[in-house]
Design a protein around this nucleic acid. Structure first.
Length: 187
DNA sequence: CTATTGATGGTC
DNA sequence: ACCATCAATAGG
């Protein structure tokens, strides 16, 4: 299946977040390939979205979100986990989509959990070295894949953003309904 | 089953 | 001081 191109990402985060369900995230390293089907995402809408890191404006850390679509925004949280986002929308906007869970497809050990943004990065070997990388051209990229069947896309409030007031309750999280690789409490 | 807490370091 | 998390633990 073909790689996802720049134009896929150059659309609003809410559209990309929903359409990424069923797509495949691939990480190639030295003769080794790990991949999984995306089953849970969250959209972050840019500077006006109080739940987004971009809401405090352009900083060294958030700069990449203001740039062109199709690049990775990878950050380190809680002193131990990495989270990966895809920059979406037009150059100059700061929209992004957080990847929250995968269904293992290839190169992932059977006992590894992939239901959570930190675990997703751990399992695929994604860290800050991938921040700002070009997902259209690099060794970390997306392949096309079949979407969830009709009726299997669910949406609800985002996780872990209670500090964002009304924005924390907006239904910007998308997941593959009933999928075993979305955490029990969240599916 | 739910609720709580400790680990640990970058960012602003 | 706070945090787009997770695993371990304690309690019902």
């Amino acid at each position: 299946m073909a790689r996802l191109s720049r134009s896929f990402f150059a659309r609003p985060a809410l559209v990309v977040a929903r359409e990424l369900l069923g797509k495949v995230l691939v990480h190639r390293t030295a003769g080794h390939e790990r991949s999984g089907i995306i089953v849970e995402t969250e959209a972050y809408l840019g500077e006006r979205d109080l739940a987004s890191h971009a809401s405090r404006g352009r900083t060294a850390r958030t700069e990449v979100m203001f740039g062109p679509p199709g690049h990775a925004y990878v950050y380190f949280v809680y002193g131990m986990h990495h989270c990966m986002n895809v920059v979406t929308g037009e150059d100059g906007t700061a929209e992004a989509v957080l990847l929250r869970a995968l269904a293992p497809l290839h190169g992932i050990e059977a006992d590894q959990r992939t239901d959570g943004p930190g675990k997703l990065c751990r399992v695929l070997g994604i860290d800050r070295a991938h921040n700002r990388s070009d997902l259209v051209r690099g060794d970390l990229f997306f392949r096309d894949g079949p979407p969830p069947p009709r009726g299997k896309v669910a949406r609800g409030p985002r996780i872990g953003v209670d500090y964002a007031g009304a924005w924390s309750r907006k239904p910007y999280r998308f997941w593959w309904r009933d999928h075993a690789c979305v955490s029990r409490k969240r599916r």
